[in-house]
Design a binder for these strands. Structure first.
Lengths: 197, 197, 197, 197
DNA sequence: GATGAATGAGAATTCATTCAT
DNA sequence: TATGAATGAATTCTCATTCAT
């Protein structure tokens, strides 16, 4: 009997090795060889777990977006504005280690711009989050937690976009932890002030 | 020195041809050959105007950011909140044609993530805009246009990040003109409401 | 020694599976994996029965040529031209199923052109057949069945070559059963007419 | 102005270099690298003249078959059996140099067995030659040069097949010049005797 | 004996860059 | 200055073979 391997686990190992290799060498300059070395396996083994480099990259991006979705969509709707924004705020707190990967994820993501299929998936994911937030805003209106003059649909997308924008700036440009915390704080305050009845 | 004018013109022509080629073939798949074809010049001629592909790409990105900077930094400080936000709002209105280029610029930009030098330049540019907004916020506080409890420095960066986030979402995902207008409107309103004394 | 019988049987099973795989995927594109799948055994098991892919292929070719030799060399010399040519004619009648394998055998055979060792084996086999025919021609001359002006040595090789040519044309190009029968008939007639005293 | 090259001539140079490389290293083991070396050009240059290895090989095979067709189909129909068969006989005389390439051509040809498109082309070519011979046989019957009992259509294909078979045996197995001449002689005699009225 | 995961040498192909004309 | 043919380093991916289980 040959070695029994946990395929899922090996795939995770390779994906995480790939990310480390991307960190070391830069996303586009990283070769399958370097990824294999980082994972301590042979080049050919890579191809036993991922059909091609493109598949590996899109799997990494998908995984990232899946996690993002889980992080940004709470289990159930919040009944108060405070709770809702506290949840968002918490989701925005990324540790230093993770924030190193932001540019990498964006580069990987960018490399898929020309694929209609993938972009549709990501588009759908953002619509899903937007939709959840919109419904939560409607609940908060009903609860007379927030003004009933706002447009829940539009504002929810503005919220997501702002979150993305802030995370992106943290990841791309050297915004330190301290400053970032203040930005998150102020962004949340912005919404609190503007929405509160 | 008419030759110098020609050189500049040719460089602009090549950069714009490159962008069109990127649109056609996707940023990373576009070859120097295709750029030359798009520009109706020979491959070798490209190298008379740009030392390398990397230089061409970074020149394109730089140009884009220079324009962005010009668009986002007004000639002088605004004295009222209304004027300030009206300016931002106007800057956010991108025509349909231009928004096609957003993913491309982003991809080109992403390809430079691993270059410390380039990232520093872009970082500095955002700091410059942030700094201008911060000072304008301070003027508006002095003018008792806005609350004096806000943190001008932090909020200015939040503003830039939000602008970036909204524009990127428009460029990446299929957000139509109508929806985008509403988003810009609401984002500006958010700031108006939150900042107004 | 029942194990020995099993081994032979397994080798035959693998060889025939390989041929089917070649039919399915084309000779050169067929991998050891596909052969193993076709034989319903593991890749590693293949190597217990054949030292290498080259050995497997050459064994297949050898087997084919051994069968060809058996088919083309009768048990004993014929005493009349009619019997001799009737035997050849019968040997030429290949069923539809078998003729599908002709291009495959040829391709497998062709892959050994650069091996002096193998080519020598096949060369020797054709010499052996030629030699048998030559001797039979000499017997027929003695029996005054055929003209004594012919060159038995040369003509026997011409006969083999012609047989080969006809069979290959049937295998390579879409010559239907009917036409092929007529060709065999006429080829035999050619010899009958030309040789008969 | 860059170097002006005769594209056709360069292609011929590459094809002939490829053949020499095939002779040296064996058809299937020859790499594009070796072909480039043999042609004294860089690997990349190869791809300026042939889109892929497959195209190069199929171009070589096509060229060979075009030449074969030209060699086997005379300018006009022959009016006597002697002339007809003398022409065939002459076509069969291949010099020693050329005969080295026979196995290579066959291996290249064999590598295309799985391509329906190419096989159709070669099939058509043989039908064309067969058709010409058939018509010439019919003329010879009219001229009372040969028996009117033969089947021109079938016999013409037998003739081609026999030619192919003999050439093949010369190319594959070490049949020396002398013996080969005798074989050609006897094969032609066979037809003369059998067909003559 | 049997298995199939792991290996890594090796091949085709691409493309930024150079340079002779 | 302009050209585009030539270059060859670099990259992805394949697959025969090995070997631990």
């Amino acid at each position: 009997m040959p070695k029994v391997v946990d395929k899922k686990q090996m795939q995770k190992h390779i994906m995480s090795s790939a990310l480390n290799a991307f960190l070391k060498y830069g996303f586009h300059k990283t070769t399958m060889n370097q990824i294999a070395n980082e994972a301590n396996i042979a080049k050919g083994t890579l191809y036993l777990y991922f059909k091609s480099k493109d598949v590996l990259i899109s799997d990494i991006t998908s995984l990232h977006f899946e996690r993002l979705e889980k992080k940004l969509i709470p289990k159930e709707y919040f009944q108060t504005l405070e709770e809702f924004l506290a949840y968002i705020k918490n989701a925005l707190l990324i540790n230093k280690e993770d924030s190193k990967f932001i540019p990498i994820f964006f580069e990987a993501f960018a490399s898929q711009f020309s694929s209609e299929v993938f972009m549709k998936v990501y588009e759908d994911m953002f619509e899903k989050i937007t939709s959840f937030y919109k419904e939560n805003f409607e609940i908060l209106i009903e609860n007379t937690e927030i003004k009933n003059t706002i447009n829940p649909s539009t504002l929810s997308r503005v919220l997501i976009s702002m979150i993305d924008g802030i995370v992106l700036h943290k990841g791309f440009f050297k915004i330190n932890e301290n400053r970032y915390s203040l930005m998150v704080e102020d962004a949340i305050d912005l919404f609190t002030t503007a929405l509160r009845k």
